[in-house]
């Protein structure tokens, strides 16, 4: 289990303890984190799980699938260098201290 901190759009922080092998999207949806929809269930089809990774460098995160970049191009909120799709960040102890910010909108 590893803690992930979500910073909601209104600035509230929520810490969720996530089991290894579970994605940040899955954890957020299960715990009802407002602003992460994850409608395709992690099938890399919807881009409604967009987050900004605040704490780790890109190199410390799981690598991006080309389809993730393609979907990110179409996200509703501003695309930033730290943008990721949360369903592609699968938790492991290597991600200790992960902080992600929820964008203002997903659709």
């Amino acid at each position: 289990m590893t803690d992930v901190t979500f910073i909601l759009h209104d600035g509230t922080r929520r810490i969720v303890d996530v089991a290894d092998g579970i994605s940040v999207m899955q954890a957020a949806v299960m715990e009802n984190i407002k602003g992460i929809d994850g409608e395709c269930g992690g099938c890399l089809s919807c881009a409604t799980c967009h987050v900004y990774v605040e704490s780790l460098e890109a190199g410390e995160l799981p690598a991006k699938d080309p389809d993730e970049d393609a979907l990110l191009e179409g996200v509703a909120a501003e695309l930033r260098p730290e943008s990721r799709l949360a369903c592609q960040i699968v938790m492991s102890p290597a991600l200790v201290g992960l902080v992600v910010r929820v964008p203002e909108r997903q659709v």
Binding site: A19, G21, Q26, M30, C40, G41, G42
Partner: peptide, 22 residues
């Protein structure tokens, strides 16, 4: 439900990752 015929059937998506809400 969608992963049932996709990753879950193939064995690449575990049951725990299918849950909608905790």
């Amino acid at each position: 439900r969608p992963p049932l015929s996709k990753g879950y059937l193939k064995g690449s998506v575990p049951l725990a990752a299918l849950r909608l809400k905790s």
